[in-house]
Each structure stands twice: as C-alpha cells, then as structure tokens.
Amino acid sequence: MTPFRYLRTATAAATLVLLGACAQPGTGAGSSPSSAPAAAPPTDGDALVLRVKQTGGFAGPEMIASRIPDLSVYADGRLIFDGPVTQQYPGPALPNVLVRTISPEQVRQLTEQATAAGVRDGTDYGQPGVADASTTEVTVTTSAGTQTVAANALREAMAEDPQLTTAQQEARAKLRTFLDGTDKLLAGSGAQPYLPETLAVVVRPYVQPGDDLPRPQPVAWPGPALPGEALAAPQKLSCVSATGDQRDAVFAAAKAANSATPWSSGGNNWAVTFRPLLPGESGCADLKAAR
C-alpha cells in the first residue's frame, strides 16, 4: 500500500507552508539556485502535468490491471488521487477516488519541485535488496518535455542498504521528500468524490469462498454484458466499460454492494473490480498496458 493512503490527516495549514516554501524557483527540496527560468507546465486543461503511480510488486493480476495512480495532476489544476480506505472486510465495491482543484501557480510550483527533486530521465535510484516491492514511477511534463523516473522499493529499502551507493541513496531521499510534500498537499480541503465519464470494470470468474466464510447472494449486473473483452487471457481476466445511463446504474448498484459481491450476467456469476477511468483514458484498452 502506498504512502498516500496513510498521510491524509495533515492539515491545510501544512499545505500552505509547503507551497510557500517552493514559491521561488530553486528553493524547493533538493534544488540549487539558478537564474534560468523554470520550464512551464502545459496550458491545455486536460493535459497531464504530474503523475505518481505504483507498478509491479506482489499483487494479483486483477489488482494490477485496475490499479489507480496515487496522484494525477492536470494543467487546469485538478488533482485526482486514490483516497483513504477502511480496513474492514469485505471492503466497499468502489474505490475511493477523489478530486480537488489547486491554482495554476500551485501547479507550476509542483512541476518545479518535481524537477528539483530529480524527476529527470536517467536519474539512478539503484536496485535495493528488497523482494516483491512495487516500483514508484513519477512523470512530470513541462514545456521542456516529459520526464519519467522509477524507484523500486522506495519506501521499503533500508536506510543503509548495501546494494545502494551514496548517490543513489541521496537521489531516493530527494524523491521521497518530494512525495511527502504531495501527500501534505492532498490533505487540503475541498476534495470531492471523482465521477468519471467512463467506468471500467475488470472481470474474472467468481469463485465461491471457503466453507468457513459467508456466501453472499449474487446481484444482477446492470451494466454491459459480462465478461466483456479479453484483458489478460492466462488469468481469465476480461473488461467492460460503462458510460451514460449504464454507468449511473452500475454506480448505484455498486454503492449497495461490497468487494466480495458476486454479479450475475448471462447465466454466470462474476467477480469484478471497478476502475474509474481518468482524463485521457477512454476504455479497457488503457488497462491492458498496466504492469
């Protein structure tokens, strides 16, 4: 589980301190003074400016296919992020995806901070001696182009991991400091549930739970016929997407269900994982590249 799920209790005041600290180019964490103007973020409102996501790691194929980025920042100031979840089992059927808006100045500050923190193609984070950990991938887009870095086991690696050089440890520390700052930013007020134009659903055959577990009653599926198009053949994963009235019907049914609910469609029962599509995504094809 990513750090974004643990740090939602920071106050809005901390957010203001964070943004004030990076108000001047070259004063953000890990930066050095420079007289050169910082590269500006895109101005097209739907353009993706910054994304933080997890890839790989020890997770089931359906979870990898439906994984939501920790944070997506768009040029118009929208922050779409994976919000906190309860620890109850079974959990809610729908993920807690939230959206809030920041100012254009704050968007610019975020891109400057990311660049200052080392989000540039080729930054070396090394490979720590940790097995089965996810990789944190950070992408920033400015007028200078798109830069992406990837750090495996960014939070799990030991502070003195012998497989990491001093330079790699320093690069990882700078990236963690930047991500800690974005966590605080997400604690600001005004977050609302994110309602996507399209709701994708990762589908797999339903398997009855063991004898010692409750057997929930199937619920009639109100959306496009399951199982839909093949997504990952070896794992028997498929996918459907719903828009308009079908999307609304699926959302309404899912709010009354939970993550263990079986859904009946076409004479069979199915297990589903919901994945709200983000701006720039249009359908199940966007989930095939998940890793």
Rank of each mutant, 00 (worst) to 15 (best):
M1V: 15
T2K: 05
P3V: 10
P3T: 10
P3C: 05
R5F: 14
R5N: 15
R5Y: 13
Y6T: 14
L7Y: 08
L7K: 12
L7D: 04
T9P: 01
A10F: 12
T11A: 02
T11M: 02
A12P: 08
A13H: 07
A14I: 02
A14P: 02
T15D: 11
T15G: 12
L16K: 12
L16M: 04
L16C: 04
L16D: 15
V17W: 12
V17D: 15
V17Q: 13
V17H: 14
L18R: 03
L19F: 11
G20S: 03
A21D: 11
A21S: 14
C22Y: 08
C22M: 14
A23P: 04
A23R: 07
Q24W: 06
P25A: 11
P25M: 04
P25G: 08
G26L: 01
G26E: 03
G26S: 05
G26I: 05
G26Q: 03
T27Y: 02
G28F: 06
G28A: 13
G28Y: 13
G28K: 04
G28C: 14
A29L: 15
A29Y: 08
A29S: 15
G30H: 03
G30L: 00
S31G: 11
S31I: 00
S32P: 03
S32T: 14
P33S: 08
P33C: 04
S34T: 15
S34M: 07
S34I: 13
S35R: 15
S35G: 12
A36F: 06
A36Q: 12
A36K: 12
A36D: 13
P37D: 13
P37W: 12
P37K: 06
A38S: 12
A38G: 09
A38F: 11
A39S: 15
A39V: 06
A39N: 03
A40P: 10
P41V: 05
P42K: 05
T43F: 01
T43I: 08
D44S: 15
D44E: 14
D46G: 09
L48I: 10
L50Y: 00
L50F: 02
L50A: 07
L50V: 12
L50P: 00
R51M: 05
R51E: 13
V52L: 00
V52R: 02
K53V: 06
K53T: 13
Q54A: 13
Q54W: 09
Q54Y: 08
T55V: 15
T55Q: 11
T55M: 05
G56R: 01
G57F: 07
G57W: 02
F58H: 14
F58A: 13
A59M: 04
A59N: 08
A59D: 10
A59Q: 06
A59F: 01
G60W: 06
P61L: 03
P61S: 07
P61A: 13
E62R: 09
E62W: 09
M63N: 15
M63D: 15
I64G: 08
I64F: 00
A65T: 02
A65S: 09
A65N: 11
A65W: 04
S66T: 01
S66D: 01
S66P: 06
S66I: 00
R67H: 10
P69C: 09
P69F: 09
D70G: 06
D70Y: 11
D70H: 04
D70C: 00
L71R: 01
L71A: 00
L71H: 09
S72K: 00
S72V: 07
